[in-house]
């Protein structure tokens, strides 16, 4: 299994907490696997809740008109990289 960076572990925990994924552990989330549909099976309500949790924890907003959204939400690794670039706190 691929190693998670400290931030990736933190974001994985945030996903689990924000979405009440009681039966998922940080170790279960593959860093390169899709978060939506096939992978973790998240949907658009989950995306919204996750975006709200990210803005609370890291102090910046994910926007619907960001043309990189498909990339940003594509995996834990991509999402963590985006947070790393844009975080205000």
């Amino acid at each position: 299994m691929a190693e998670l960076s400290a931030l990736e572990q933190e974001v994985a925990q945030l996903i689990i907490d924000a979405l009440n994924l009681e039966d998922v552990a940080v170790a279960d989330i593959e860093p390169e696997a899709p978060l939506f549909r096939d992978g973790l099976g998240l949907d658009s309500i989950d995306a919204l809740e996750l975006a709200l949790a990210i803005s609370r924890q890291y102090g910046f907003q994910l926007r619907s008109d960001d043309e990189n959204n498909a990339q940003i939400f594509s995996s834990l690794r991509a999402l963590s990289a985006h947070i790393d670039q844009h975080r205000a706190q």
């Binding site: 995306a47 919204l48 994910l62 959204n69």
Partner: peptide, 13 residues
């Protein structure tokens, strides 16, 4: 349009 990860973000905005 519904179905994308950003659909409900657009609704929120």
């Amino acid at each position: 349009p519904l179905g994308g990860a950003q659909s409900l973000l657009a609704a929120k905005e």
